[in-house]
Design a protein around this nucleic acid. Sequence first.
RNA 1: UGGGUUAUUGUGUAAAGGUAGCACUACAGAUUUUGAUUCUGUCUGUCUAGGUUCGAAUCCUAGUAACCCAACCA
Length: 553
Amino acid sequence: MSEEKSLNFIEEIIENDLAEGKYKSIITRFPPEPNGYLHIGHSKSICLNFGLTQKYGGSTNLRFDDTNPVTEDTEYVESIKEDIKWLGFNWSNEYYASDYFDQLFEYAVTLIKKGFAYVDDSTSEEIALLKGTPTEAGKESFYRQRTIEENINLFNEMKSGKYKDGEKVLRAKIDMTSSNMLMRDPIIYRIKHAHHHRTADKWCLYPMYDFAHGQSDSIENITHSICTLEFIPHRELYDWLISKLEIFPSHQYEFARLNMTYTVMSKRKLLQLVKEGFVSGWDDPRMPTICGLRRKGYTPLSIRNFCDKIGVAKRENLIDLSLLEFCLREDLNHIAKRVMAVLDPLKLVITNYEDGKTELLHSENGPDESMGSREIPFSKELWIEREDFMEEPAKKWFRLAPGAMVRLKSAYIIKCDSFEKDHNGNVAVIHCTYFPESKSGQDTSGISVKGTIHWVSVIHAATAEVRLYDRLLKSENPAAEEGDFKDYINPDSLEIIKEAYIEPSLSDATFEDRFQFIRKGYFCLDKDTANGQLVFNRTVTLKDAWSKEVKKG
RNA sequence: UGGGUUAUUGUGUAAAGGUAGCACUACAGAUUUUGAUUCUGUCUGUCUAGGUUCGAAUCCUAGUAACCCAACCA
């Protein structure tokens, strides 16, 4: 722990600012637009913004950037708040850009009075045409010459509802020849006769992002306004507006957003997956949304650790999904209760075990003694995993095969004597004998076996539906592939096992529980569980050296 | 063809002119009543070409590549 972790570039900026006395303490903000659900990419920003003030002191606001009433809704506000809380962060203040609409309007009037803004009657097509291109300068609008007085009147009329959507806009008067397209007289207010989820019908004109975000930062005294790389061109405008308005100088810093292998992150694509039925909803466990990950069984700590490990820098990145899974397993390994469940059952009969006898066997709940232990019923007939038996054993196989011995976890060592097949030629029953003196914890048999397999007693087994998830997309970088990302959807991303056999203790499972189904992976209860019908989601598989061995051939 | 940003191993991230480190992945081995966990080890990297310097990932010059910018979205 004595190792000093190196700082990311934003931490360096902050430490410098603090050391130079530029600020006594810092204020950051997380500013989502309430028009969709948060995803793992947002968690990078959340961990960064909240993490910075946890580390350096100060406060972090949650601010909804709700300047576009037609796309936004309180449904999203609620889900966003729930997700942030679940991740483990508490905001100092809950603000809304819409709280500042009156103030923002006054700022716009100020800008007009200073001669830095004007009302433009051009159509959006005309404005686009005069804007030029990245390689060609734009041309000034005919309306750019309006007097301050005329602009004030017009702007007030816009507010009063005199004009229809699109009839007029307010533009900042900057420079139509700027090499930065955003400085070519950007639109800062537009007319929208639309119902806003918070201000209702009070307004019919709304500020654009560029005239709301920086100003909101300034109103809240945000010292470090952290956003993603694509906003770099906005910074010049951000600074220009603050300087013309002569308000608190917040500063914008940009970092590279998270990209992850086998995952799409854009709101548009995630929406398509939901709308077109590729997944069951925003919280489908295959989705990279926070609610999807939560439902799948991810823990807040695993996501926070992940965000910590990926770092913060300015270059484009594509993070291995395996790093996220590593962080997940690392946490789950500590907290998950070990239990036994058979997903693909094969019957095993212990021929020398007394008919009708039941034994309660002692089994530890986890590697850590503090997790306690429980009793598991054992009897003559058991379910074992079909893949744990091989009629003709492969090389290095140390599970069950004719003549082979294995230990039944927490129970006895058994030897396979014979097996039966059904009329389809599939193995139907395995016959074994057990060694009474090999009982777990009091083994005096002197037999040592290489393999240990899990099992569930047939007459004591409970049943559950188990849902196994694989990656939704087959391509490492679906966004970079040619054609539609949907061409790369994995058709086998969901496997439903309608009736798996689980040990009876699992009947009492709660939604908070995290389980490791021994040798099969980490699981948790799904919200579809109802009326005693248990439904489990596989959160993540265990690392599997055997399947790699098989692939090697 | 304009402007901006970025380039360190398979992936991500450190090294502020002085030993290119760490994590994930992959691979090999040890331990194991989970082929898990744990432990040990291995793993061809500074975009290119010049230059400055005793010494360059870092400084200079010239290139190259990737990403972003022409929504009344954020």
